[in-house]
Amino acid sequence: MSIIKYKTLKDVPKEEFLVPGTPLCAGCGALQVMRLFHKALGGDVVWVNAAGCVTLMATFPYTPLKSSWFYIAMPSAPAGAQGIRDALDILIKKGKLDPTENLKVVVVTGDGAASDIGLQATSGAIHRGLDFFYLCVDNEAYGNTGFQASSSSPMGSGTATTKPTHLYPAGNVLPKKDLFEIWRSHRPPYVATISPSHVIDMLRKVEKSLSFKGPKLFLALSPCPTGWGAETSESVKLAKLAVETGIWPLKEAVYGEVTHTYIPSKRKPVEDYLKVQRRFAHLFKPVKNESIIAEIQKQVDEYWSKVEH
C-alpha cells in the first residue's frame, strides 16, 4: 500500500466536490475540513448527516455538493449509513444493481451527535463492522443551536449553557469526552484525528483508510469563529495552535494500535491557544485564573508524557 501520494501541498487534488454559496458561517472550520476530506475521498460519495451546523449546507432547494447527501435525524446517522450500505450491497449481490453504481458511504456529524445523542448508533455500526467512513467535525459544542455545551466541550470553556459565573469560574467544569478512545475501544480498522491546519497529514490518513474495509473514523478539530469567539480569518491559525500546544494530538489507530503522526518538537503553552478565543476569555479577565489554566496545561502535559517516552 502506498501512502506517498500526498507529499506537498502541490499534491492536493484539484477537483472540487463542494461548490461555493453555502449558508454556513464565514471561516467555518467544518466546511474547510469537509472540502479537503472530500478531495482525498474522491467521487462517488453519499454523505449521511445528523442534525448539526453542516445540515444547513444543503437546504431545499440548494445543495453545494456534487455528490449525494442524505440528512437523517440527530441520533442515527450511522444507522442511516447502514441502510444505504446494506441496500447497495444486497442489490449488487442480487444482480439488481450495476456495481458501477456503488458509492462510498460517509457519515458527517458534529460532536453533539457523535459524542452524545448518536453514540449508541455509532457504537452499533462500528461493532457490526459496517464498511463506512465517519467524519466528526468537532467544534466542541452544539454550534447550530447557539453553542450550548456538548460532552465534547473542553473543561474551562464558556458556552451558552456553561457561562462562567462567580459560582462557576471555569465555565464548563466537565472534561471533554475522549471520542477517539471510545471509538478505538471497538478496535475498528482505522481511527484518526485530523486538523484542517495539517492538510497533508489529513490527506494521507484518508488515503490510508481507503485500503481498509470496515469502519474508518475521523475526528476533525473544526474551529468555529462564531462559537469560539475569534476572527473568521483565524480558523486555520487556531487549528494550528491546537496542534502545536498539544491540545489536539494528531494520531491514528490501526486495529487499535495508536501512532502519533505528528509530535510537536516543542509544545507551545496552552495559554497561547486559550487567550485568543472569547470562550476562554473568563480565564484571563478581569483577573487571570492561573489555577484553571495550569490544570489545562497539566492535562496536556500528562497526555504527552505518556506519548513521548
Partner: peptide, 12 residues
C-alpha cells in the same frame, strides 16, 4: 442513491 445520479435527500 446511485453513483451516476447524485441526489440530496431529507434536506431541511
Amino acid at each position: 442513491i446511485r453513483a451516476s445520479a447524485p441526489v440530496a435527500k431529507g434536506t431541511p
